[in-house]
């Protein structure tokens, strides 16, 4: 008999290393044509950080993103970033880039203030223009100012910035401290169908609702969440590294089972944007958090469907059948298989 159930799980997750320093640094150069080059050590392994960081640089300088060239992950050329780990790149490398851009923008604004007749603090830049905040029609092309700064004033428009989240170690006596500077939050709901004859679990649908601060690039954020859910689904149901005397026995993708397109159900993603005042334009992170609630939500859904608690992952058909048999032994004659309404005994 096939029985359906739903389960929910929540999580919070910190951005960055636990108390240890994990800095990032960036250089920026604004060219005479109003384009810019950003150097960052942050490494894009496919999550899209180079795109998001280019967007951050563009908004921080006030130029179109098409005019930003990124130079990344080259230990000879780029300043250091500690790595694409701890869901930290958008937050920490992003903050470093904002600071580098602020330094370059200060040079632009000081030069522009002569033309616009107001101090640099009264200026803003957007879409390739520098303008007076209170009188936006009083404006000058950013490229013109960049050229003037470099050629006439002898002040190349460059900037450098770094960021390291302010943290403290936990006090060994009290356990108190501030090991992270910010956190993200999420909830996921899984709907599953459990076959009580075979122990097989089919995930029918997953809803994933995530806070990531400001979503710099919502399409990329969705991609991170969908991929994380698929990874969490594998963790919940099929992926198990089998060790024997220190050797991995299942070293092939034929026996270490990564979810396929037929295993991953439709995923309803919702991004809850709560801008964080400490993040670049309010952004935090989304990499790892996306997969954390998936397995507990699925295991809770299994419990809702057939009334057994699976406490060892993955929840393979064998483990589910064993748990169902244990339950029958404890409650003879009240087998979940006999119930008509599909609701488990609890």
């Amino acid at each position: 008999m096939k029985k359906r159930g739903r389960g929910v799980a929540w999580m919070f997750y910190p951005i960055g290393f636990t108390a240890y320093a994990n800095p990032s640094a960036a250089f920026v150069k604004v060219n005479q044509d109003g384009s810019a080059v950003v150097w960052t050590g942050a490494t894009d392994v496919g999550q899209g950080s180079t795109t998001a960081l280019a967007q951050i640089a563009a908004d921080a300088l006030g130029i179109p993103v098409e005019l930003v060239t990124m130079v990344t992950s080259d230990t000879l050329q780029t300043p250091m970033d500690i790595g694409s780990v701890a869901s930290r790149v958008t937050y920490i490398a992003g903050n470093a880039i904002v600071r580098a851009c602020e330094m370059a923008k200060q040079i632009l604004f000081e030069v522009a203030s002569e033309e616009l007749g107001i101090g640099p603090e009264g200026l803003e830049s957007r879409n390739g223009w520098i303008f007076v905040r209170d009188f936006p029609e009083r404006r000058v092309r950013l490229a013109e100012i960049a050229r003037k700064a470099e050629v006439v004033k002898g002040r190349p428009v460059i900037g450098a910035g770094s960021y390291n989240p302010p943290t403290t170690f936990l006090d060994p006596e009290t356990g108190h401290g501030k090991p992270y500077n910010t956190y993200v939050y999420a909830a996921q709901v899984a709907e599953v169908e459990v076959d009580t004859e075979t122990g097989e679990v089919k995930v029918l649908r997953i809803a994933a609702v995530h806070d990531c601060g400001r979503a710099i690039n919502p399409l990329l954020v969705e991609g991170q969440i969908e991929g994380g859910v698929a990874m969490g689904l594998g963790y919940a149901l099929s992926e198990e590294m089998v060790l024997q005397e220190g050797r991995v026995l299942n070293t092939k993708l034929a026996d270490y089972l990564v979810p396929t397109s037929l295993d991953v159900p439709p995923i309803d993603v919702e991004i809850v944007e709560v801008p964080d005042p400490t993040g670049p334009f309010g952004a935090k992170g989304i990499g790892e958090p996306s997969l954390l609630p998936t397995a507990p939500a699925i295991v809770n859904a299994i419990y809702d469907a057939v009334g057994v608690r699976i406490r060892e992952l993955p929840a393979t058909p064998e483990r589910i059948l064993m748990a169902l048999r244990e339950k029958e032994k404890e409650q003879p004659g009240r087998s979940v298989r006999d119930r008509e309404d599909g609701r488990p005994e609890k």
Binding site: G223, E226, A230, V258, I267
Partner: peptide, 13 residues
Amino acid sequence: IAGNLCRCTGYQK
């Protein structure tokens, strides 16, 4: 596409 594994996207997109 069931024979093409993807570890990043969750296949949806």
